[in-house]
Write a protein that binds this DNA or RNA. Structure first.
Lengths: 331, 331
DNA sequence: TTGTATGCGTTATCAA
DNA sequence: TTGATAACGCATACAA
């Protein structure tokens, strides 16, 4: 049997209540009993059972992180940042992966909510049903969103418009004006990056050309390979490609270019998005837009803590992080 | 207030015990009460509080995964595999990152154990103190190890000796006999790969040469760059390099070779380890040893489940996965 | 300053 | 087939 608060009490000759007060460092306990109890705790190797504590306190000491997949760079780096902030607290992380299925998401959220599995929730890159969210909000369950924005809760995200703008501008400053764009087919972030792209074109007096846009659903390597071909078919006149769909896709573009005998950066310049750690291992090294993901994860956790302890209001608020242009050889 | 089992009981006019039995589908409940209770549950939108349940059952429904960092390819892929298996269960994943600090590890394990935070533990690539492990084992807390082996618990790992052998043999069959080796400076896996390397040399009558071995601490790109130089300094006579320290390091070797004007594979052949997904993006494409990491993660979880439900004994047992030689252009 | 009593939500044992 | 009761480990209001 695990040693409980009762065992300590019996050993010292006080009641469990007293031991409990010592553990929670209540001020009104005599120095002497305190020492005795602490000694016994150490001696008997007592550790509080957090389930018992949770039940009476109505707190779980868990933070739930929900994402479609954790085996992605973005999710993983976010988690790393969250972990870093978590470090000094007594909270633990529970991961909920929807595996890309919306039906899972609904179900998961319901369980999270009704079964009281977490004191706060971080939602990574997931669109959440408005009505589900309202339930949470009504009960005051703290939620912070990463990347996605929802009316009524804080969001931590990147300045995607700026990222899109920086990449496009970098091309233009390098004398490239026929800029293709590979971008996600939906989602706020994709639209923001697109806007940045358009803004830059506009600021430099370059007309926007619908034929230079290719939309992708999955942000993987194969899509990149396909996209280059699609793009060259739609528009023969391209001297640069901004792959706003991410570095992995951009690497697919690089690979396909090599197969087609297209030289990067001589014939076509390429800029990716994310700065994954292999971006400097490709040949040529990939110029890309870096996002401080882990840092953002830390911030997210801090905001959530604020909501849990009541110092941060439960309301719409966008905290945004700056992107950074990492210049390598691909343009 | 959240709706509890009592509310349901009151509504239907039975006792909480009865409701509980319905929830746990006890066979000895009349069809009629069952229906009434279920209707009320649905109607009042009741969901069981898992903390209450945990307290009385002594189970948490959580699985803890411990690793030094989750932002590594290996850990990430493992988690992905674990997630896949987890899918059909009611278990949740709690991640514990030691951040590479041994003192964290001890503390974390203690908390995990004494505070009863998880029903089972998966330890990824971490050496665990024998005495801590013994505590767990004494209490029957199920643990499965990934990669590391400990006396008394099951381990899921790869056949590193075979992997080392396959790579070395592939060189030999390609008429290369002056094979350099870049390998981790400690750890069971490194030693096993080294053994595979030696075995192959031996089987083909090639003398082992200490000067052809370079040890690395970190398995990163920069080490690879350095290693090539070190190796060429130690032994001028090398026509092949087996980078058992992983693909990232191998890519560093490739990069450095290019800088030094050494042609791969003409001058020197290179084989990596892991088959990370950019291994086919380098030029030349990296020949490497692939390990089915995600699959191994799934297996690990399944073994743990077996230990939790008592069908798998708590004992030393090594489940090993086969490596695979992926031939590309680097040799 | 400490002990007594009670309750958190659920399940299990026993009796009815 | 169901009800009454106790128990899981802990924290808190109140009494002493």
């Amino acid at each position: 049997m695990r040693v409980t608060i009762k065992d300590i009490a019996k050993r010292v000759g006080v009641t469990p209540a007293t031991v409990s007060m010592v553990i929670n460092s209540s001020p009104k306990i005599s120095q002497k009993t305190k020492e005795l109890v602490l000694a016994a705790i150490k001696d008997m190797n007592y550790h509080p059972n957090y389930i018992g504590r949770s039940l009476v306190k109505g707190k779980t000491n868990n933070i739930a992180v929900v994402a479609s997949f954790f085996a992605s760079l973005f999710a993983l780096e976010s988690v790393r940042g969250i972990e870093a902030s978590l470090r000094n607290t007594t909270y633990n992380l529970i991961l909920y992966s929807t595996r890309g299925l919306e039906e899972n998401e609904r179900d998961m959220m319901q369980r999270l909510f009704y079964e009281r599995r977490a004191d706060g929730i971080i939602v990574i890159s997931l669109r959440m049903d408005k009505d589900i969210f309202e339930e949470f909000k009504k009960e005051g369950v703290p939620i912070v969103f990463l990347e996605e924005v929802i009316e009524g809760a804080p969001t931590v995200k990147f300045k995607n418009i700026k990222g899109g703008y920086m990449a496009t501008e970098h091309f233009i400053k390098n004398k490239r004006k026929k800029i293709g764009l590979i971008i996600g087919e939906s989602g706020l972030n994709a639209e923001e990056r697109l806007k940045g792209y358009k803004d830059a074109l506009n600021d430099y007096g370059i007309p926007f050309d619908e034929n230079k846009i290719v939309r992708v659903r999955n942000y993987n390597f194969e899509e990149g390979e396909k996209c280059l071909k699609t793009l060259l078919k739609k528009s023969h006149d391209v001297d640069a490609i901004f792959c706003a769909a991410g570095d992995v896709t951009a690497i697919g573009v690089l690979d396909q270019a090599k197969k087609l005998g297209i030289k990067v950066p001589q014939d076509i310049g390429v800029i990716g998005y994310d700065d994954i750690y292999i971006a400097n291992l490709t040949s040529p090294g990939l110029t890309t837009i870096r996002q401080p993901i882990a840092q953002m994860g830390m911030q997210t956790f801090d905001v959530l803590m604020g909501m849990i302890d009541g110092t941060t209001p439960y309301e719409s608020k966008i905290i945004s992080f700056e992107p950074e242009l990492i210049i390598r050889e691909s343009v």
